Amino acid sequence: MSMDHLRWRPTVNERDFIERVLQSDLRVDGRNSFDFRTLKITLGREDGMSEVQLGETRVMAYVTAQLVQPYRDRPNEGTLAIFTEFSPMADPAFEAGHPGESAIELGRVVDRGLRPVS
């Protein structure tokens, strides 16, 4: 399935604005090019829960693991499955209970990042 319809293509005005901002060495929020936002990582009260805050952006994550019997043809190997879901609290466009295309694509990106190159 192609994700081309999800890619952002800037208008001429947006492109001009971005170029001017980059040339000015100043960000929209007033930081200079090499100024970092404050990073804060908080582990939750429950196992597997965490919150990451970068500036004003907050992301909450919950990670679980399950021990299951391996496949018969690969008794010494495990499996890894990545599932992602975006909360309607982040944006009303996200539906609770079933992942949309963006969540599925994020899961694929995370999966590719965690798997060893073969």
Rank of each mutant, 00 (worst) to 15 (best):
I82R: 04
V109E: 05
Y62K: 12
Q53R: 13
F86G: 11
N32K: 14
D16Y: 00
A93N: 10
R27E: 09
I41G: 08
Q53D: 00
G100K: 03
L67R: 13
R27I: 03
L22T: 05
L106V: 13
V109D: 02
L54S: 08
Y62P: 00
F36D: 13
V109H: 07
V12H: 10
A65E: 06
G55N: 07
L26I: 03
H98M: 12
D47K: 09
R72M: 06
R20S: 15
I41T: 14
Q53K: 13
Q23H: 08
P99N: 10
I104S: 06
M89K: 11
R31H: 09
R108C: 03
P116K: 11
M3S: 10
G48P: 00
E56F: 02
V63N: 00
D35C: 08
I18A: 15
P10D: 05
V63L: 06
E77Q: 10
T64N: 05
Q23R: 12
D111C: 11
E85A: 12
T84W: 02
G113V: 01
A93K: 13
I41Q: 09
E51H: 08
S33T: 11
G100D: 15
D35N: 14
A103F: 06
G78K: 05
A96T: 00
L26T: 09
E105I: 04
R115F: 02
E95Q: 14
E14W: 01
S87F: 05
E46Y: 03
E56N: 13
G100H: 05
L39W: 09
